[in-house]
Design a protein around this nucleic acid. Sequence first.
DNA 1: AATAGTTTTGCAAATGTTTTCATGAATGGA
DNA 2: TCCATTCATGAAAACATTTGCAAAACTATT
Lengths: 348, 348
Amino acid sequence: MNGHQVANIKQKKADIVSVATAANVSTSTVSRYFNHPELVKLVTRRRIETAVRKQGYIRNRAAQTIHGIRSGTIGVIVPTLDHAIFAEVVQSFSDTVAEQGFTILLASHGYDQQREYAILRKMLEHRVDGIVLTGLDHDDAVFRLIDSQTIPSILMWNYADDTRYPSIGSDNNSAGAMIAEHLLSQGHRDIACMFPPTRGNDRAQARFSAVMETLTDAGVSVPDHWQLTTVYSISDSKRDTLKLLNRTDRPTAIICGNDILATGALYGAAASGLRVPDDISITGIGDFKGSAEIEPALTTVRIPAKRIGSEAGLALSSAIINPGSVTTGLHCKPTLMIRSSSKPLNRE
Amino acid sequence: MNGHQVANIKQKKADIVSVATAANVSTSTVSRYFNHPELVKLVTRRRIETAVRKQGYIRNRAAQTIHGIRSGTIGVIVPTLDHAIFAEVVQSFSDTVAEQGFTILLASHGYDQQREYAILRKMLEHRVDGIVLTGLDHDDAVFRLIDSQTIPSILMWNYADDTRYPSIGSDNNSAGAMIAEHLLSQGHRDIACMFPPTRGNDRAQARFSAVMETLTDAGVSVPDHWQLTTVYSISDSKRDTLKLLNRTDRPTAIICGNDILATGALYGAAASGLRVPDDISITGIGDFKGSAEIEPALTTVRIPAKRIGSEAGLALSSAIINPGSVTTGLHCKPTLMIRSSSKPLNRE
DNA sequence: AATAGTTTTGCAAATGTTTTCATGAATGGA
DNA sequence: TCCATTCATGAAAACATTTGCAAAACTATT
């Protein structure tokens, strides 16, 4: 009867104690086996290894973490993963830090600053070793909360040199200015702008204001009805473009706040029977996958997402591993990609 | 001098003890304040609240976790985030489980089964409360490792009813069969196929074999030089399509393994001067963002990524919260989206 | 005012590890 | 063979919490 009972007993979860018992050593030795194997005699190592394998023991990082040992996690907070470009930057960040043994704790706030704060708190409860925020603008409470901790933190995606934490990314002002200058240099004066809502989106905000400023400085003004606010979506942008192009007064160029909008604009132009770039020039910002292959290939400003992600990963993981070191920001410069969707204006 | 020293002392990190001291209660009471506030008297609650705020105390989930309390994390392993479609499914999964208080621990293995195993181990070290794998096929060691734990696990993205863990997703066999049948029903017999490498990718594998089987059953055979293996990339697919279409023998339709390949194929056709669908029909699988808006709008099979992500999130979080319950798989059916990139063959 | 019941709190043990220090076991040199 | 090293291991304290149990502090009832 007792035997029966024993057989029924749920094999208790393996822990360091059960492994130690099985291997006939103390828990200290098992701990050392994992953390400083060179301090453990070979034959003992073998015994422990066997016990570990037999029991299927998996170390408990939570128990390590309460000793002040790093959790091995990095909190990454993005607005959304639904935009391919953020997914790309997260991917390369994740790959980079994974090489250093970190795993990422990922969450998105959907452009809601309240949620960002709540997510950050939760990540701190998990004792992440570092924090990555997307963009430069955040609720002051977010900054204060991070300040109150001792973990390194960086701002990824945008760059500016006067930021609260080191920023690694591209300067969206230059990106906006570049594309505006490009069209101006091609002789365009009748220019429409299509940008996503700028609220809670400092990237879009910076791009938009840089474009407008560049145009204004050149004496070009954009009438209100040529300033479109369109959510990040090919279909919305296609629709709005169609509406814009069906008016009697047509711009000779459309500056789009990102490549998704530009893609929709390209489709809209095609649908309304206009030829790009002969009848109208269209530009994007971002240089997303596919922008070089679309017909016509899109003129845009390349924001090097992969590079940003890996630089940020490198910077943050070394800040974690080497707490004394100073982490500095890094400007991953945007570059103008002139392709076939824009061309000099033919004055007749 | 003493005052000076005190001012210099690094304010020690707040923990439950320091909060308890400041609030003049025991640590038990502080713990209860967080976990069972209704058991704590109102005025005591107030005192604790003040102390917590003043010290900026943040609970340590690691310390909770070693008491067998859930970690509040779910491990999500995907092949890559670089494909918009995985990013989308992760996004909606994450949103769904976030509502239940879970945060996701995310990692990608880049279609490498060894890496998947290593990632899984790491996630178990973090004591995730549940595991999500992408696709049906995994190394047996992966399954055995999960089996040895007591946490729930699901397979996301694909569906089949004979899987080792509940699967939530679409049946890629039907998806492949659907699109092949569609083209057959339109009279196409000269059909080329362009698929990504199927190694380590059960989705692509299932789609491809279903397509081939459907065609063969209908008496249509695809010559070798019309079977293209092309990596997931618009530019590669555009290039390969161009090459294919420059031959003297041209198919009347191309079945692409996913919408990215199909997009590239569309561009390739445009670049080679062919009109879609008049000269050639092109189809995708996936119905990615933008596939409905591209010119011509892509005929494809819709795999409901958002729905898959949220159903999986729902299923897994309830399996975690309610450990007794049985989790069943769910087939999120693919649907044929007939748009403008395919049309019945004109026999002349 | 005494009693019984209820609510609130604290003590102490427990969780799964790491780490410091101390001890015992080998090893090498004389 | 003995002593001084060096190497390998263990005991126990520490980490930041939770929780079962018991004591204390209230309330309500008589």
